[in-house]
């Protein structure tokens, strides 16, 4: 079976861990996130052609005084970049992190999520922003860890993208 390492990245509080929790059952508790800055889960995805064992590295959210340990990116075959649709500043944080990923790992498949789409009344991402993101990155979804919208599709998408590289 093919195994692939993917990293889920973004600012603190954008809902990365909740997205993963929607998709997998975690062996390790979230205490590893706060202590070591990373929690690893596994999910086997059945694509049309074959099965892929996704090793999902849930990396702690970037904060002002808590930078992401860049060695966690090493060897990743794909990244899921998560921003909070109700907080525009988290998008620029995600873009900064993505720049570092590109510097450290190179050009690898990515999926961009504007999360918390269920919070309609607080949604701040204009269509223009979404359009710009779509022009810049191949896969951009509006997701919700609460309702599960586009969560599974995200992981299938990144799996397919990684296999097609």
């Amino acid at each position: 079976m093919i195994q692939k390492k993917i990293c889920v990245l973004g600012a603190a509080g954008v809902g990365k861990t909740s997205l993963i929790a929607q998709f997998v059952y975690s062996k390790f508790s979230e205490k590893y996130l706060s202590s070591m800055g990373v929690k690893i889960d596994r999910k086997i995805v059945q694509l049309e052609s074959q099965q892929v064992n996704l090793m999902i590295w849930d990396i702690h959210g970037e904060e002002k005084f808590k930078k992401i340990t860049s060695s966690y990116f090493r060897g990743a075959s794909g990244v899921i970049m998560v921003a909070d649709g109700t907080r525009p500043d988290t998008l620029s944080v995600a873009q900064n992190i993505f720049q570092r990923v590109e510097q450290d790992v190179g050009n690898i498949p990515s999926v961009w999520l504007l999360n918390k789409v269920d919070l309609e009344d607080q949604w701040c991402m204009s269509e223009g922003v979404v359009k710009q993101l779509n022009e810049k990155y191949v896969s951009v979804y509006q997701s919700s860890a609460k309702t599960g919208e586009n969560v599974e599709q995200t992981f299938f998408n990144i799996a397919e993208n990684m296999l097609n590289v």
Binding site: Q3, K5, K27, F28, Y32, M36, G37, V38, I40, D41, R42, N53, M55, W57, T69, S71, Y72, R74
Partner: peptide, 13 residues
Amino acid sequence: DVVSSMLTAVGDF
């Protein structure tokens, strides 16, 4: 496989 990844992460950490 999860333990393997976690061991790597611990080493990096």
